[in-house]
Simulated scan of single mutants.
Amino acid sequence: MNPRRKKRLLAALAILGGSGAIIGLMTYALTQNIDLFYTPSELVNGKGHSLEKPVVGQRLRIGGMVVPGSVKRDPQSLKVSFDVIDKGPIATVVYEGILPDLFREGQGIVAQGVLINATTVEASEVLAKHDEEYMPPEVAEALKDMDHMKSDYGKTES
Rank of each mutant, 00 (worst) to 15 (best):
A14S: 13
E52A: 14
L30P: 01
V93F: 03
S151Y: 01
K6S: 15
E138Y: 04
A12E: 14
L16K: 11
E132D: 13
L51A: 15
V114R: 08
I85W: 04
I22W: 14
V84W: 02
M1Y: 14
Y153N: 01
K47L: 14
K79R: 14
G108I: 06
T156P: 00
V126M: 01
P89L: 08
R61C: 09
R5N: 14
S50T: 10
G64F: 04
L36S: 11
D83A: 11
F82K: 02
R73Q: 14
T39R: 11
G88C: 04
E138D: 12
L36M: 10
I15R: 14
Q58V: 03
S151C: 00
M1A: 11
D152I: 15
P40G: 03
N2H: 08
V94G: 00
I62R: 06
K47Q: 14
V139G: 03
L60V: 05
E105G: 09
M26A: 13
N33H: 15
E125D: 07
K150P: 00
L127S: 07
E125W: 07
D101R: 04
I62Y: 03
L78Y: 13
L10D: 12
Y134I: 05
H148L: 10
Y28S: 10
P100M: 06
V84A: 04
E132F: 03
E105W: 06
S41G: 09
L60W: 00
V126R: 00
I90P: 01
K129I: 09
H49E: 14
G113K: 04
T31G: 06
G106C: 02
G106N: 03
A118C: 00
N45F: 10
E138I: 00
D152W: 12
L60A: 09
G57A: 05
V67K: 13
M65K: 03
L78R: 12
K6L: 15
V121M: 03
Y153A: 01
G24A: 10
D74Q: 03
V84T: 04
I85Y: 05
S81Q: 13
L115E: 02
P54Q: 11
D152V: 11
E133Q: 10
S158T: 09
R59Q: 11
K150N: 00
T39Y: 05
M146L: 00
S19W: 09
P136D: 07
G48C: 10
P137R: 09
V80C: 08
R8K: 15
V56I: 15
E96S: 12
I62M: 11
Q32R: 15
I116C: 03
G48D: 10
K7Y: 07
V44S: 09
G64C: 08
E132T: 06
G48S: 10
V139S: 10
K129M: 09
D145S: 12
P89E: 15
G88D: 07
D145F: 10
G88K: 10
D86Q: 06
V55P: 00
M146W: 00
Y153W: 15
S19V: 15
M1F: 15
G18D: 05
L51I: 05
L115D: 02
K7S: 12
V80G: 05
K72A: 13
E157T: 15
V110S: 07
P68A: 04
S124D: 09
R59K: 13
T120Y: 00
V66E: 04
Y95Q: 04
K87L: 12
E42K: 06
S19R: 05
